[in-house]
């Protein structure tokens, strides 16, 4: 029975793969040449790197919803019932080598995150990658026993989690008067994008680290 099921699953997966390949080969030629349009409009976007221009300017709406979805995911985690211990902030025994390494690495990681954020304007990089590096630094600090788990996030932490989305929405609302959502005035675009990206990086770092750190304590108690 189990081999029969395996064969059926294999057959279905193979058929699906073939159908996908056929669908990709069968795609019609794109009606508009997007890369050409992008290159033509790049001067107006305020940044030089085409990927950042698409993410933060031409399709800024998508990125706005992305950060909203991530924040919602974190709210879902916060809503989970968690065991809050009496003796919270228990820094578990970590070995001193790991602690020293974390103390050396984390400032470097902050520097790298800042660089990736700044580099996003003219080369590969940007808020999401920089945020992931920040989150990695947070997780490393927790694993080294230097940062307690976020059992009950305080008001400052909650504000930090939301600030990326709030700044993005504030910019969107401020620009609404023009009639189009998230259409930056060309002269201001670079500065606005940098401001949004900086706050996004901060919040993303906290949110991605929060996925780990908020659950970390309940995990230890469960």
């Amino acid at each position: 029975m189990k081999t029969l099921l395996n064969v059926a699953v294999l057959f279905l997966a193979g058929a699906f793969g073939l159908a996908l390949g056929w669908a990709i080969l069968d795609l019609p030629v794109a009606a508009v040449n997007l890369p050409e349009q992008l290159t033509a409009q790049l001067d107006m976007s305020g940044v030089v790197h085409p990927v950042t221009a698409v993410l933060l300017n031409f399709r800024g709406y998508d990125t706005l919803l992305e950060i909203a979805v991530l924040l919602l995911a974190l709210l879902g985690i916060l809503a989970l019932p968690r065991h809050v211990s009496d003796h919270q902030h228990r820094p578990f025994t970590a070995n001193p080598v790991l602690q020293t390494l974390a103390r050396v690495l984390v400032p470097l990681m902050l520097l790298v995150a800042g660089y990736i954020l700044w580099a996003g304007a003219h080369r590969p990089g940007g808020a999401f990658q920089a945020g992931a590096v920040l989150a990695g630094a947070g997780v490393l600090l927790h694993l080294a026993g230097l940062l307690p788990a976020w059992v009950t996030p305080g008001r400052t932490l909650r504000a930090g989690l939301a600030v990326g989305l709030l700044v993005f929405i504030a910019v969107a609302v401020a620009l609404m008067a023009q009639g189009t959502l998230l259409q930056y005035p060309p002269g201001w675009a670079g500065a606005l994008i940098l401001m949004i990206e900086a706050s996004l990086t901060f919040s993303l770092g906290l949110i991605l680290a929060g996925l780990y750190l908020i659950l970390a304590d309940s995990r230890a108690q469960a």
Partner: peptide, 21 residues
């Protein structure tokens, strides 16, 4: 390179840490 950065940081790094935990 943009997707490569995101894959290495989020796909391998963060997801890996979560799964290990």
């Amino acid at each position: 390179p943009d997707i490569a950065l995101a894959e290495a940081a989020i796909g391998a790094g963060l997801t890996g840490a979560l799964l290990l935990d």
